[in-house]
Design a protein around this nucleic acid. Structure first.
Length: 491
RNA sequence: CGGGGUGUAGCGCAGUCCGGCUAGCGCACCUGGUUUGGGACCAGGGGGUCGUAGGUUCGAAUCCUGCCACCCCGACCA
């Protein structure tokens, strides 16, 4: 195995970068903080999109598209919202370029200054609520259940491929409801959609919870989230669903007439997941040999590598394999016969491991004689011989088994790295020596959360839903507490 | 924005300290041959404004100044 990939133990960040680069997922672009998502990485995003889009439609949502640009004045209409995003907005000030007087370069035409600057959306609540005002008049117009697939820009100081880039791709759902109960139900429903997607597709176990005031979305009344654990024990927020109350309805004057002909402000939600999920996928499952993909999101699920000496042998293997590939494709399985004559088997093995292909099948002269094949599992590295005739029926089962195995491995990892502590000393010790999720009592104040963050870099990731209630004392302040919350260092 | 590091062929690097012939190596690529059950081998070949702009010098990848980009560690955040 060529040492293309830095080991996780040696340098976790480098390992992550190596995976992204060598598996061909993305690369840095000529624009600071922005990435080029390469075809292999984008294919994974497309599988995510397809499944999420299906789930959104199934729950009654429709897609629409709103502008990239937001008038500056819109952003300032909701106080908490503007405060949350003001520091990271890209601003368009001019609409024309011209050639400089010496003819050597292109400059901004000072004559072409915009009357009102345009913000490149960091999220679309404002432009959408400004639009919804015109769409909503009566309770009969509700609920309004819209999603959009879009790019957004947040001018972060420090970026990391997929995890935090200046521009990223996401979906943002924005819904309007006639009652608080209904909006809350929608918020919870979409959280469930995300959680199920994370566990069934990404193979990543997540904890559903509520954010504390410090971590809440700017402009939300309540932020729900799914939190995942990465292999270095750090937490990653994998999706959020916000109950916005009537904050944006009031800011943009969105009212409806209820059944008794009384004007009421609309209740709102918004929810989103982004290309960050690709980063989660990498950090949850991959190993020192490369990417490990759950079958449901793998662009190639099964690769068949022929082993041969002479051209006739390759042709014979090709002829044997073609009906299998066809049969698998008709079952919806993404199978590939890697008959590239320029690469040797060993090279192909390494390459497909690097790219995370879940299942590899090798067929050589011995197999041709015996009517067998060698199957190799990417996730466990296990290899075994199987009769060729069984492949067609076994492969779908094996892929399901791999999908499940990846999830269970991640779940076991999370359980092994979840700790319960009862004192601040113990808290700091566990955080430094073991990392992971720490369940501890907290007095419920922002001040305490702030202090702990300053001193340890750990934040409250969430208060789990259906959290068991138990009396205890806050590890920091010693004040009484009714429940434990999850602390962790986070991405 | 602070601290540290890097920028030389598609990729990975040496050369830079101490300026000097035609800028080198591995991988990849092209041609031919031998190979093929875990990143094959031999022979021949193509590919470079040495990040960029300026300066010093007879002469700059090498010295000086500015700028740009990226990586790692912080602060900010999804």
């Amino acid at each position: 195995m060529a040492d293309k990939i830095t080991s996780r133990e040696k340098d976790y960040s480098e390992w992550y970068n190596d995976i992204v680069k060598h598996a061909g997922l993305a690369e840095h672009s000529a624009v600071k903080g922005c990435m080029v998502i390469k075809p292999y990485g984008y294919a994974i995003w497309e599988f995510m999109q397809a499944e999420l889009d299906r789930k959104f439609k199934e729950t009654g949502h429709v897609n629409a598209y709103f502008p990239l640009f937001v008038p500056k004045s819109f952003l300032s209409k909701e106080a908490a919202h503007v405060e949350g995003f003001a520091k990271e907005c890209a601003v368009v000030t001019h609409y024309r370029l011209k050639t400089s007087d010496d003819g050597k370069e292109v400059i901004v035409d000072p004559e072409a200054k915009l009357e009102e600057e345009l913000i490149i959306r960091p999220t679309s609540e404002t432009i959408i609520w400004n639009t919804y005002r015109n769409w909503i008049q009566s309770y009969r117009d509700l609920p309004l259940l819209i999603n959009q697939w879009a790019n957004v820009v947040r001018w972060e100081m420090r970026t990391r491929l997929f995890l935090r880039t200046t521009e990223f791709l996401w979906q943002e759902g924005h819904t309007a409801h006639a009652s608080e109960e209904e909006a809350l139900a929608e918020t919870r429903q979409m959280l469930e959609v995300y959680a199920e997607f994370a566990e069934k597709y990404l193979g990543i176990p997540v904890i559903k919870g509520i954010k504390t005031a410090n971590e809440r979305f700017a402009g939300a009344v309540e932020t729900f989230c799914i939190e995942a654990m990465m292999q270095d024990g750090k937490a990653l927020q994998a999706g959020t669903s916000h109950f916005l109350g009537q904050n944006f309805a009031k800011a943009f004057d969105v009212t409806f007439l209820d059944k008794s002909n009384k004007p009421e402000y609309v209740w709102a939600t918004s929810w989103g997941v982004s290309t960050r999920l690709i980063g989660a996928l990498i950090m949850a499952h991959s190993d020192d040999d490369g990417l490990v993909l759950p079958p449901k999101l793998a662009p190639v699920q099964v690769v068949i590598v022929p082993i041969y000496k002479r051209q006739e042998e390759l042709e014979a293997i090709g002829a044997k394999v073609a009906p299998l590939v066809q049969a698998l494709k008709s079952k919806g399985i993404r199978a590939k016969f890697d008959n590239d004559d320029a690469k040797k088997p060993g090279w192909k093995f390494a390459e497909h491991e690097l790219k995370g292909v879940p299942l590899r099948i090798a067929i050589g002269p011995r197999d041709m004689e015996n009517g067998t094949a060698e199957i190799a599992f990417r996730d466990t590295k296990a290899k075994q011989s199987i009769t060729f005739a069984e492949l067609e029926n076994e492969i779908p089962k094996i892929l399901d088994q791999i999908q499940e195995g990846i999830y269970l491995k991640a779940l076991r990892f999370r359980e092994e790295n979840t700790h319960y502590v009862n004192s601040y000393e113990e808290f700091k010790k566990v955080l430094d020596e073991k990392s992971g999720f720490i369940f501890a009592h907290w007095d419920g104040t922002s001040e305490t959360e702030e202090k702990i963050k300053e001193e340890t870099k750990a934040t409250i990731r969430c208060i789990p839903l259906d959290n068991p209630q138990e009396d205890g004392i806050c590890i920091y302040s010693g004040k009484p507490s009714k429940q434990r919350v999850i602390f962790a260092r986070a991405y």
